[in-house]
């Protein structure tokens, strides 16, 4: 699948499969092409080339059928601000030929959290409640596939966790979830994922598979004066990259060219004698950085 906007290649020859009933994460930064892919898959935009199927239906020919089978929650809040919570839900239910009563079972768990505010206008809801309402509206016609475009962007760490718990329950009810996020730490919560950057899929698989393919070894290095230490570690022979990860630096090295002891000795030689270095397994964020092949030292 490819799509360009004038000279900008938004997505470049992307191929991917999502299994029935899984949570599939599309993970990448702003401008990677996530929203473009969502719009094409939800039949709202045509690709320049390539083809796609949702639940066995062609995204161009069968677009009308697909729209009844999927739920879509765009990145920007797009419900009717002047309608109340209940009116929004009734509206979407009616559009899909159902009623709130009929689908109450599907959305009950999430809807019950905003039901006390059912007469409040959507525009007057808090961010968290808006998100829950949008999710209810996307689920009101019992879709087979739920598309969520960056549902957690700009959401704090506690609410993000809650949101993912909700996604887990939605999957349990048999709905396939296709979700995008710029937060790498949400990768481990997906069954499978695709890493996307500059319009290309740079890695795909289960989180474990992606991690297993990481070609280097990683040391978590700590010491005093972390920032000068970071710059020094990058100078060491055999060190592929070094970046800060929370309270430690993740140093990627080639095991055929150097080892932990050598690196520690070199660091000591550069004025950092009291470092600690622990061999650790890479995370998705380490993999993303390696796969985006933007290594640079300085």
């Amino acid at each position: 699948m490819s799509k360009s906007y004038r000279q900008v290649h938004a997505i470049k020859g992307i191929s991917l499969d999502v299994g029935k009933g899984e949570i599939f994460g599309l993970i990448g930064p702003d401008g990677a092409g996530k929203t473009t892919l969502f719009r094409i898959m939800t039949t709202l935009m045509l690709a320049d080339s390539g083809y796609g199927r949702i639940c066995g239906l062609d995204i161009v020919k069968d677009y009308f059928k697909i729209r009844r089978l999927i739920g879509y929650m765009p990145g920007r809040f797009s419900l009717y601000q002047d309608l109340s919570v209940k009116e929004n839900l009734d509206f979407f239910a009616t559009m899909f030929g159902t009623t709130l009563r009929e689908s109450y079972g599907t959305i009950k768990e999430i809807y019950s959290q905003i039901e006390p505010f059912r007469d409040r206008r959507a525009g007057k809801l808090s961010g968290g409640m808006k998100q829950k309402l949008a999710l209810c509206c996307a689920l009101v016609h019992k879709p087979s596939v739920l598309f969520l475009d960056e549902p957690t962007t700009g959401v704090d760490a506690v609410s993000r966790k809650d949101f993912w718990t909700m996604l887990g329950r939605i999957r349990q009810s048999g709905v396939t979830v296709f979700v995008s996020t710029p937060y790498m730490d949400e990768a481990s919560l997906c069954d499978r994922l695709a890493l996307i950057k500059d319009g290309e899929i740079i890695g795909t698989g289960t989180p474990e598979q992606i991690i297993r393919q990481y070609p280097y070894r990683i040391l978590a290095v700590k010491g005093r004066n972390m920032y000068p230490l970071l710059k020094a570690l990058r100078m060491i022979e055999g060190v592929e990259s070094c970046f800060s990860f929370g309270d430690a630096h993740h140093l990627a090295y080639r095991p055929d060219r150097t080892c932990r002891q050598t690196i520690l000795a070199e660091a000591a030689g550069m004025g950092f004698p009291d470092c600690t270095a622990k061999e650790i397994a890479p995370g998705i964020e380490d993999c993303f950085m390696q796969l985006s092949k933007k290594w640079g030292k300085n």
């Binding site: 930064p29 702003d30 700009g154 920032y227 800060s244 964020e285 993303f288 950085m289």
Partner: peptide, 13 residues
Amino acid sequence: GGVDPETRRRFWE
């Protein structure tokens, strides 16, 4: 917000 992991870290530098 929203930038790739390396750019985010370069920004902190």
